[in-house]
């Protein structure tokens, strides 16, 4: 399991446009980091770079477990969740079909799926097609993947934006359980998360 993520002197470029350079960040087990920054500062790109989807222009991203540095491919394939603006849910399939598929794909078990359904109150939504869900309901379905397939590092992009106040608090409790279990959260946010976070601001200021 990933116990530390270190980002060293990272520079990212999107197309021709440099986003930032010389960015350093270390996230330790049990820690939540809230990335802030103006629109276009590169928060989403940073998350995608950590997930291995966007190659860095310079610098490196290193994953450690308690025994030392681990293979980044391996770490990303087994122990990392990415939740972005695009949630990968298919409008024409039911919530149950999508949750089943992604749980299996991400290596989760049936117990994990059942726990996720209960924790995010998805039971009444399972039979509905994804297209019929409200944006808050749809986000809860996307968040359910984090619970259904336990993985150490959560990369979240504006995770709670469409949720109502009660659901935010509820998901805050789930985040706390994740952190208490040695998990890590790196989230791009504009609103504060309902857990204690370390704020890191991204920008060329």
């Amino acid at each position: 399991m990933i116990s530390r993520l270190s980002i060293e002197a990272l520079a990212l470029v999107r197309g021709e446009r440099p986003l930032f350079d010389g960015f350093d960040l270390t996230v330790e087990a049990g820690e939540a980091v809230a990335l802030t920054g103006a629109n276009g500062a590169g928060k989403t790109s940073l998350l995608r770079a950590v997930a291995g989807l966007l190659p860095p222009a310079a610098g490196r991203i290193v994953f450690h477990d308690p025994s030392g540095q681990i293979d980044p491919e391996e770490a990303r394939a087994r122990d990392l969740h990415l939740l972005g603006h695009h949630d990968g849910l298919k409008p024409g399939r039911t919530a149950a079909e999508e949750l089943d598929f992604w749980t299996r794909w991400l290596g989760g078990m049936d117990e994990g799926r059942a726990h996720a359904v209960q924790a995010l109150e998805l039971e009444p939504l399972l039979a509905l097609e994804v297209r019929k869900l409200s944006s808050g309901q749809r986000r809860r379905l996307a968040l359910a993947r984090l619970i259904a397939a336990p993985r150490g590092l959560w990369l979240l992009d504006e995770p709670l934006a469409p949720l109502d106040a009660a659901r935010r608090t509820r998901f805050g409790a789930l985040m706390r359980v994740h952190l208490d279990g040695g998990g890590m959260i790196l989230a791009a946010v504009h609103d504060p998360l309902p857990v204690p976070t370390r704020a890191v601001s991204l920008g060329r200021a």
Partner: peptide, 17 residues
């Protein structure tokens, strides 16, 4: 294209497969 547009391809590339 469908999986690329809606972000599913990101997640498909993050599995162990």
């Amino acid at each position: 294209e469908r999986d690329f547009e809606d972000g599913a391809l990101d997640l498909l590339s993050l599995g162990t497969t």
